[in-house]
Nucleic acid binder design. Structure first.
Lengths: 149, 149
DNA sequence: ACAAGATATGACGAAGTTCGGACTACTCAA
DNA sequence: TTGAGTAGTCCGAACTTCGTCATATCTTGT
């Protein structure tokens, strides 16, 4: 049984085109990311690093909630990051159960490199569009992402 | 030392906007995917299933190459899929070293459901744009993804 | 003031994944 | 026929995720 939409719904062709574009996009993205040197951090760890970069002093629970993973999983992640010297965990006195997460020097460098890599990729992507299209594209994807329905 | 681009390069604002949009996009995408019932297949396994759905009779090496993972990793994936009854592995006589991968009945159903879920998501995304914008958006993302530079 | 309950983390371990190295079986060219 | 190359799999080490349990600390109703 197939849903028959109104005239203003996206067409099947549009959906198909978008699907294949995304599929290809995701694969390339992964490939580009994979060619980093040394043992790359786990996906989760990178996400944690970037989050802490933007929210210095936050607690593990905050990060876990944001990334939608169990706190124990996040605990493992911070463990790894601390062990590699990318993250600092410090008890705070306002609430001595809690810890405040901050990036170490090298953690900040790593995060910065990561951000830069993304920037490069975005640059490459946008550079394939004309200047006019760039604004349009960004406006559209923003509309898609943020317009909760 | 920062690279100073030409006037027609994407602006920092554009890059930043695109970055945050993607970040949010990726997170939502993951969440939506996570709400499937029963033990969900590993990410790799799903990718394998979808690939085989489109390339019935292909061999493990084909899939491994396409997904850019070692053949041993792909072997594990097919093992799991066969064990769950989603995939069939059959020796072919043209080359008796090779095996041909095909979806089982339930594998096809699963793949179909997966495709449908993506379709839904793409539908939701496109529905936030006006009909005119949809074509424009697809044209742009296609240009971005396929125009190798 | 304090017992009871909520919170923030960490320790531990089971279950599951990735992937290098070794191995089997088969094909092919000389 | 033999040696090199190819398709796949098996095994095991290293890692991740995440549930369960244990530890400190807050917080509060009384």
């Amino acid at each position: 049984m197939r849903y028959v939409g109104s005239m203003s719904d996206p067409t099947e062709d549009q959906l198909a085109a978008l699907g294949t574009a995304f599929e290809t996009f995701a694969r390339r993205y992964k490939l580009a990311d994979a060619l980093r040197s040394e043992r790359p951090l786990a996906e989760l760890d990178k996400a944690v690093l970037l989050y802490v970069a933007e929210h210095a002093g936050c607690g593990p629970t905050d990060v876990a909630r944001f990334l939608a993973v169990p706190t124990t999983t996040l605990s493992s992640a911070t463990d790894r990051l601390v062990k590699r010297g990318f993250l600092k965990r410090e008890r705070i006195e306002a609430d001595r159960r809690a810890v405040a997460l901050t990036l170490s020097e090298s953690g900040a460098i790593y995060a910065q490199a990561q951000v830069e890599a993304y920037r490069q990729m975005h640059m490459l992507m946008l550079s394939r569009l004309s200047p006019d299209e760039r604004d349009q594209f960004i406006a559209m994807i923003t509309k898609i992402v943020y317009n909760d329905s």
